[in-house]
Amino acid sequence: MLHTFVAYVEDRPGVLTRVASLFRRLNINIHSLTVGHSERNSLSRMTVVCDASAEAGHRIRASLFKLENVVDVDDIAGAPSVTRELALIKVAATKHTRSAIFELVEVFRARIVDLTAESLMIEMTGVESKIEGLIQVLNESDSRILEICRSGKMTMRRGHHTSGVLRAMGADPGEKPLPDDEFAGAAEESAAIESE
């Protein structure tokens, strides 16, 4: 099964190696890995997606926690969450062939971010399937894809800050925790936003 781990790690040299090395040792291929700044100055946030058994998921999380530079690890199994990926796609296009691509981009709610005589660049944000849908449609059309750059998945749980560890470190949970029924409502609302 696919696991999505969200980890807060110290923002210092070598931490990425330690995290990556743990997966390497278990012979688990990382599908995607994104790292960037988090809401806290000294911490980076990682989203790691990998394919492993359900039992391995527990062990990976427990092993990640054993790394001194890892502050918090969340295994977003089926929990309500929002996942996004960013893709930049460069397509060969001349002034004669552009308009067909413009239409596709419109349908997929992507954007053209660069345009030259021979090519154009599409920026698209969305869930993995949507990005793959655009790539497939481009491939099936007469357009020739020159380059694809994908960020890998970024995932965030819905609702208030769920990290007990970070709250213990003084993280702002945002609004005071919502009562269960309100939380359910909020989740539905954001589900509606995502499905748009």
Binding site: E55, H58, R59, A62, S63, F65, K66
Partner: peptide
């Protein structure tokens, strides 16, 4: 004491 050892070899 090590959570990573739970269910590693024997369930």
């Amino acid at each position: 004491v090590d959570p990573a050892e739970i269910n590693k070899n024997v369930k």
